[in-house]
Each structure stands twice: as C-alpha cells, then as structure tokens.
Design a protein around this nucleic acid. Structure first.
Lengths: 353, 353
DNA sequence: TTGTATGCGTTATCAC
DNA sequence: GTGATAACGCATACAA
C-alpha cells in the first residue's frame, strides 16, 4: 500500500485512519490523511466487500416492459435513490427481471452472488411474490409503497394520497373555485381509492361535495379525456377537476382546449405526481416528496445493517401542492407552458423530515 | 466450499466448471454442475472482482438536474443498458455527479475505489471534460453519441438523424402527403442540424422542398407550439410537419386540435424518438434502436476488457418509422390515443446488427 | 497508539 | 484432467 509507505506507517494504521479515525493519534491521522489525499487513495470496495461479507449495495428492479408511460415518476425516484445512496456509503445495482411475472430468479441471483445485500422495492402489489420470498430468505428490503400482503411489515414509506388530494381541493377553494369534481380510477385500486377519499372528505368538509361530479377511467390519456368530457359538461364553466394523476389531468386539459376553454381561467385542473407533464402543460399538481422517500428508505436499510432504530410502523409523507396556471383563475396563456414555469410559485403544505 | 465437498472435487475444479467447462472431464462436469444447481451456488462476485482485479461493472451517470423532461428517452435507454449488461456478465452502477458542471470527482471516486472499470457516456457535448479525463487516466468508456472533441475516438454509437428524418419524409410521401415542412431547433446544434438536413435532402429528392416551410424553436412545448402555428398556417390543410422531437410534434398537435383539425386526416405530423408522448398522442415517430445501441456499447467494452475486435470507427444506427394516426390520412379519432396504439403498425426501415 | 497475523472466496499458475 | 498453492486488498482480533 503506497499510502502506508509514504506516511511511514503500517497498512493497518491506514485502515484505521479510514474507518476508525478516533483511534489514531492526531499527528499520525493528519500525516496519513495528507498522504491519502495526495495519492488519491480509495479503499478497494471489492476487497472491503469480501472482508466484511456484505456488498454495501442495494438492488433496484427496473421494469423492462414496453417503455415508459407518460406521467411516470419512477425514473425521478431512481435518481433520488442514486443521490441518497451516496450518503449512505452504498450504491445501487439496477436490474431487470427477464420475466416480469416471475421476478424472483433475478433477486435470487443478486443475493446468491452477494452483489447486493438488500433491495428497494417499488410497485408492490397484491400477490406480489417478492416480499414473502425476501422475508423467507432473510434478505432485508424496504418498500416505496405499502406492502399490502404483509400487514406487520413496517419497512415501507408511502405518500398520503388522500391528504394530498384534500390539499388540492383546499388549494382550489382558496383560489375561489367551489365546483370541484374528481376524475380517478375505477374503485378497487388502493391508491385510487385513497386519492378519491381525499376529494370526498375535503369537499364534504367545505360543504361542496357533489357525488355526481365524479368519473372513472383507466390510466390512458384517451380514456381520461373521454371520461372528462361529460364531467366538464356537468360541472360547467368555472368548475374544477381534481385528478388522480397528471395523465388524467392532461386528458381533461385536451378536452378544455378543444372547446376553446382556458385551463385555470375557465376551468380549474389539479393533477397528481408533479410529473414532467404537469410542468410542461402548466398543470397544478401534487408533488411526491421523493427526496424524503429515498432518504428514508435508505436510512431504514442502513439501520438494519449497522443496527439502529428501526421503524415499528410505516412512514407516510404528505405531498405538496405545486401551483401552476391550471388553477390560476385570473387567466393563463394561450399556448401550453408559455409564460413561465411558475418557479417560486409553489405552495408548501406540509412534508416531513 | 460446499459444492466442492458435495461433488468430491477440489475448489479449483468447481471454479473450472464455472469458468472453463471445456477443461473439465464430461463426467466431472456433470456431477459438479448438478451440485451447483442443487445447492444454488453462485460465485461471490466480490471475491472474483478482487482476484481478477476488475469490477465487471460499468458506471452510468444519471443527471440529477431538475427532474425529467417530456419526451426524454434516457430512462428507456437505461433499462436497455441494464438488460444488455446481464448478457455481458456485468452490471451497472448508476451515479449522479454532485455538481453537474464538474462531474469528474464522481468518476474519479468510482475508478479509484475500483467499483467500476469502465463507463457508458451519454449526453456528450462540446467541451465535455469527461472523454479527455477518462482517456488520460486509461479508463475505458463507450459513448452513446459522438464524442465531438476527439475525432479519433471511435468507441461510440449514434443514431442517424438525417436518414431517420428522410425516412419520415418518405413515409409521408408514401401516405399521399406532399406538402412537408420542418420544425426543428435553431441552427448550431449538431443533432438538430443533422435532422434538418434529412428533411432538406429527402424533400429535395422528391422535388417538394420549400425552404420557407421551416421554423425553429427551443425544446419546450410552448415555444414549439408558437413556432408551429404560423407554419401550419403557411403550409395549409393537407400539409405535414416533420419535427426534430416528439415534444415539438406535440406542440404542433396542440395547435391543430385547438383549431379543430385532426392530426393525420387534416394535417400530418412526424415526431422523433418514439417517446411515451408519441405513443400516447398517436404521433408517428422515429424510433431509436436503443436495444441495439445498448448491446453495441456493451460489446465494445467487453471486447476492450477481454480482447477482441475493437471498432475503428463509430457505429451509426438507423431509426425506424413507427406509424401512428398522425400520419394516417384516412382519419384519426377525436380523442388522443384512442383507437389503438397501432401495435403491429410499424414500418421497418433498416437497422443494423 | 501502532503493528502483526489471519482469512474473506475466488482464480491464475503450475505441478502432478 | 485435476488439485495444491498463492495472492488479490481489506478489516478484525489480538499482541506489542
């Protein structure tokens, strides 16, 4: 080891400087540190991994499926995870299951070859085979999204869709709108039901709940537009629509534009996720605090590794209203996304550590 | 090593079975292989990495910047890279530079700690500090996109924008359109100039080149719509617009819809990249062969590692026209993305290895 | 506070 | 065709 020679100490002392600086005499510490910087020394992570019998790496499954869907924020989340992983002395190993329906072999590979020692799960669903398998094999994991099939599992972080939508409703009320409908997914999906309940609660609280002002559609843009059209008709000018996703809000947006209506001035729209679509189309939306989510998940896994406080229940973060022109009653530009991206126009409404 | 004991051979023989099966007697091979499967043995990759003094891993920089942009296909490319990496006995290590303007420390970290032994670069630009640094430090890398500043560097793969756009023009001609304009970026960007030249060439070849039917805009939706409006006016009904990106095509799409025109039936549109936008809005677009690009880049790096044929010049792939309703002169649905996603409606036009 | 010895699991080398 | 030996770089335990 060059550093050891240069600083005239043993290899072991260098190791101590890196890993347990408090054990080293200040003078030695300084000298060795200087040499480390000078020579650009970094511990060989493969050797460390071998010695410690852990990889300091997290597996993250990417979905191989047919490309990306509009309004998706998984890639933003991946970036947040990547950034957060640096501060937790680990790195990510992305992988894609050969067969989306049978992801376990891919997980097994990574575990058996000790390339990773934990996983971050996303898109957990009913009958998801992964949580049970990971539990049975003693592999730590944390999930973005509740693990529905294992109620006692607490290493998850989620976003409070109901409160988010309720905040969106209140944002509309504060901006002078009062006729507020909801465009969501058909009943049955946990996330969709959660978001819809926020609309019911907040409009009821404000005394403006109209059950009929609700429609369902599947995720695609065309279906959302088709469902939005009669709803916009029913609610009428000056009304608004809170949507379960940005894609749905965009569906409504297209309907408005084709009728010559201006989003915001003529009819309010609120989306969900604050995706690229929201920014480009000037849609007010509910931003998921992905930075916090990523940080929290990595904290859990780090504590699981090193010992520390582990959560006894899941963590729920509150989304934030990002106000844009689609809820600006004073008027919006004719072209999409023209007239500023409303930077600094954000309304904060909560959020946790 | 359990497998060695179970199969009554030495560790080394197990290693040979895994890495050099041809050196092992068929009978032994079979016995050991059976035990490997039975016990689920996988080589410890940290140990292998340490022994071989290489990580078998590739660094991929993610851009931490302000979220994702509409029409971006980098995440799709990342998935393709991830999938391809499996077949090349390696894995990816995504990372984000703390400071986008000064990415080198992040690269240095990964190299010095031997977490990766090569990089895949994307978004190479003029005055990009990365290629020179990597070269000077002897770190192999391959680039998606030409490396402009180092003409002699040949480990890159790119997509032929000019030919792609020309194919788009021909696709329009085949579908009966003849008035073909171009909406692109201001002159000066290599990619934008490349794509525009395809329009000039193909329309000139067909004798339908009209220099005035061209407009420029920056990447955003609003600017594209603003630039598209007068162009659509000038070209007139029954005309078409080939665009440098799907976002631009979408900008034109919004203009059409607001005028009550139906994309395809009333005015043709062709985008570029075949992003999520193209699929959702029914835009005909030019698909970059990202699977081939990823595979090619990994091949280069694998050959660099193991020794093999290395490219003496860059590789250029040809995009593929993906036909959708925006170039269907017979008519398109009223709502976006309704009426099928045109699966199986692809026109293949080239492609390599 | 610092140094020495050991082994993590693998594979390259070389002897058999 | 197979096996013994050594070494990759680090961190743990323990000795000095």
């Amino acid at each position: 080891m060059d550093v050891a020679r240069a600083a005239q100490v043993s290899r072991q002392t260098v190791s101590n400087v890196v890993n347990r600086p408090y054990r080293v005499a200040p003078q030695t510490l300084e000298r060795v540190t200087a040499e480390i910087l000078r020579l650009g020394f970094r511990p060989n992570l493969a050797a460390r991994s071998l010695r410690q019998e852990r990889a300091n790496a997290l597996g993250v499954e990417l979905h191989a499926g047919s490309g990306r869907r509009m309004g998706d924020i998984r890639d933003v989340f991946l970036v947040e995870l990547t950034i957060a992983s640096r501060q937790h002395d680990s790195h990510l190993v992305p992988f894609a299951a050969a067969d989306f329906e049978h992801p376990l072999p891919a997980y097994e590979d990574l575990v058996a070859s000790k390339l990773v020692d934990a996983f971050v799960l996303t898109d957990t669903r009913h009958d998801d085979p992964r949580p049970a398998w990971l539990r049975d094999h003693g592999v730590p994991f944390a999930s973005f999204g509740r693990v529905w099939d294992e109620p006692e599992f607490s290493w998850w972080v989620d976003v409070d869709g109901a409160t988010g939508v309720a905040d969106g409703v209140r944002h509309l009320l504060e901006n002078g709108y009062s006729r507020i409908g909801f465009l969501g997914w058909p009943a049955g999906s946990p996330i969709g039901d959660d978001r819809r309940s926020g609309w019911v609660e907040a409009t009821t609280d404000a005394g403006v709940f109209v059950p009929a002002w609700r429609a369902d559609a599947l995720g695609e843009l065309g279906a959302a537009a088709a469902a939005a059209a009669p709803l916009i008709e029913a609610i009428g000018p000056g009304g608004t629509l809170v949507c379960a996703s940005d894609v749905m809000a965009l569906g409504a947006w297209t309907v408005l534009r084709e009728r010559g209506l201006t989003p915001g001035a003529d009819f309010g729209l609120v989306g969900f996720d604050d995706s690229d679509l929201a920014e480009s189309f000037g849609l007010t939306s509910l931003r998921q605090p992905l930075t916090d989510v990523a940080e929290n998940l990595l904290s859990i896994l780090e504590h699981a590794r090193l010992g520390g406080n582990l959560p006894t229940q899941g963590t729920v973060f509150r989304p934030t209203v990002v106000a844009r022109n689609s809820t600006n009653p004073l008027g919006a530009p004719a072209a999409p996304a023209t007239g500023g991206t409303s930077a600094g126009n954000r309304t904060s409404s909560g959020g946790s550590t």
